[in-house]
Design a protein around this nucleic acid. Structure first.
Length: 212
DNA sequence: GCGACAG
DNA sequence: ATCTTGTCGC
């Protein structure tokens, strides 16, 4: 794998990422995720209103061209993600993975946000980059830091579950990303946009298996 | 050289 | 991520 080339792309993404709140009313909040089956994958996207009610759903299939390699996840998921959200109308997009809490400030959420130039937030189930001091508790997020700056927040969204790691993708601040995620919780560890997109992608993948 | 390492 | 049933705990 030619990482030099991939890193050049990530550098391009990082240069254009804007970590400040730049979005209007969030009437349509979307979530995307990808499920795999061999060399193919299914992307699932969902659009919800502020009350987290489903407004729209979409699925798409794509071929997988990259293996999973930490810090290069984007290149494995981008195709499925872009096809699933293509033409979709939304004010904010949540993705399963890091935003700027990435060694080169170019996690999946940031990459997609820059490519589409749309506000995005990354919600990861594990930490990839940065440090968290202590254990976050429900109602008490802890900052994910690196070199004295806040990259995002570790959030215990529910008792008895591991925390999730929220970081800005593009056109959102760390605090804005945190607030958004908290407003999308409905009693599960993951915010609704991501949780529902995950389920949708999984079903679309099962449908592929069934048709071949 | 050693450890860490999104999905 | 994916392969997989029941089971322990909040």
């Amino acid at each position: 794998m030619d990482t030099k080339r991939l890193e050049a792309v990530q550098a391009w993404v990082a240069e254009r990422a804007r970590i400040e709140d730049d979005y209007g009313p969030l009437d349509r909040i979307a979530g995307v995720d990808v499920a795999y089956s061999g060399d193919r994958c299914a992307g699932g996207a969902v659009v919800l209103d502020r009350a987290m009610r489903v407004l729209e759903e979409r699925t798409a299939i794509a071929r997988v061209r990259f293996p999973y390699v930490p810090t290069y996840l984007t290149f494995r998921e981008l195709g499925g993600v872009l096809r699933a959200v293509k033409g979709l109308d939304f004010d904010m997009l949540l993705l399963d993975g890091q935003g700027v809490a990435h060694p080169r400030r170019a996690g999946l959420a940031t990459h997609v946000g820059v490519v589409l130039d749309r506000p995005t937030v990354g919600v990861a189930k594990g930490l990839l980059w940065g440090r968290v001091e202590g254990e976050p508790e429900v109602g008490r997020p802890l900052p994910i830091t690196c070199r004295g700056q806040t990259l995002g927040y570790a959030v215990r969204t529910r008792k008895g579950t591991k925390p999730v790691f929220v970081s800005p993708g593009h056109r959102v601040s760390p605090e804005g990303a945190l607030e958004l995620v908290l407003s999308c919780l409905k009693g599960y560890r993951l915010p609704e946009p991501v949780r529902l997109a995950h389920i949708l992608a999984g079903r679309a993948r099962d449908e592929l298996l069934k048709n071949d």
